[in-house]
Design a protein around this nucleic acid. Sequence first.
RNA 1: CGGGGCGUAGUGUAGCGGUAGCACGAGUCUUUUGGGAAGAUUUAGCCCGAGUUCGAAUCUCGGCGCCCCGACCA
Length: 419
Amino acid sequence: MRQSILFTKTIKESPKDEKSVNARLLVRAGFVDKLMAGVYSFLPLGFLVLKKIENIIREEMNSIGGQEILMPTLQPRANWMTTGRWEKMDDLFKVKDASRKDFALGATHEEVIVPLVKKFVSSYNDLPLYVYQIQNKFRMELRAKSGLLRGKEFMMKDLYSFHLTEKDLDGYYEKVKAAYIKIFKRVGIWKKTHLTFASGGSFSKYSQEFQTISDGGEDIIFVCKNCNQAINREIFDEVKICPNCRRKDFNEEKAIEVGNIFKLMNKYSKPFDLFVLDEKGRKKEVVMGTYGIGLGRIMGTVVEVCHDEKGIIWPEEIAPFHFHLIQAGQGSKTEKIARRIYDDLQKSGFAVLYDDRKGKSLGEKLVDADLIGVPVRVLLSDRTLNANSAEVKLRSKKETELIRLPALNKFLVSRKLYV
RNA sequence: CGGGGCGUAGUGUAGCGGUAGCACGAGUCUUUUGGGAAGAUUUAGCCCGAGUUCGAAUCUCGGCGCCCCGACCA
């Protein structure tokens, strides 16, 4: 993409109504725009990142047998009455139509997926079944905060699994756990992410969460110094011992909950009477699991974890572009060669942000590049051109390297980091 | 939902009952261009509504909005 036609612009000062690191950097760099507290638009750069995250999640969900669907946001009150959550769920958005009929805006989709599955699943042969969607959720957060980390409207991947037995659910639960670890590795936050025991809410005594250590987080976890297992503060007092290695030595950390996995058992299959017939024709209750990841929250978490005083440092797999090509100087030869590098890289299958803006000093372009945080910067100026070279720099490193132009494309493309 | 703080231009501020001003930013043009350059020029504001007053950015009341702490958070 040519930066001269990118309609968003970087902002020099941090917006005064944003305190969290992720919101300040993402707004300044032009990835997102705040419409109101807890509700953000994703601008071209931010939408690219969101789609990368989405695709990683989609790939990993597909790899464990997930079938993708899309369910409605607008949902009938009756389904929520069936589960009792119309009254019980404090943060459920409720709306009325012109005839005063009630609807819920989907905060989660058990009330839709269970009746849906009931229409198609009737035999034990139909199980297990794994269905997921990636879609906006609405929650009436009374206190939206921390930029993208806690919003009223946010994109979420929600996976639901349906099983004949708890044992089968347990097996799939472990598969999801492994898939989640892959996702957190690919988006670049796994090193700071811990599998964490937490309260099970109303379903079971405990659940498991993935918590990423960050000052921007709102949870407190205790990380086992021996094995990296963590325990959420909400249950620490009753546990006080690592459930994994039985030791009692912990570090206390602030953390962001980036995903959770949950055994629902019959919590929702029961109210909707979701059952199958087994091989002997007997009714068997279906057991379920639910597994969520917030996409915007992942994006915000990545920024919280991957930034420096100059801006964002995107992990390679979710960066909006592979390369940020910067053209400095208005010489027609410089422009011609920059254009050729841009075209060649794109032909090689890479996404390039090409800073072809006129009238900006190199300093301004470099400051913008640091803020936006594309992993690899390629600088072509009159000066580098004199040496028949371009300067290559990783956003995460200080060193720069001059690469001779004839070898440039090969050098950049040969980096195995970008696929 | 409880508590606290705060609303004057995009940002930061001045004004303290009597003509809304400054700086930065942003736009245009020119000269520039190796880490946010310079000149000229332009743009843009009292959160909203009632009340008090001859007169309200300023005082009173109500609303709305934002931030922070807590509670909540399949």
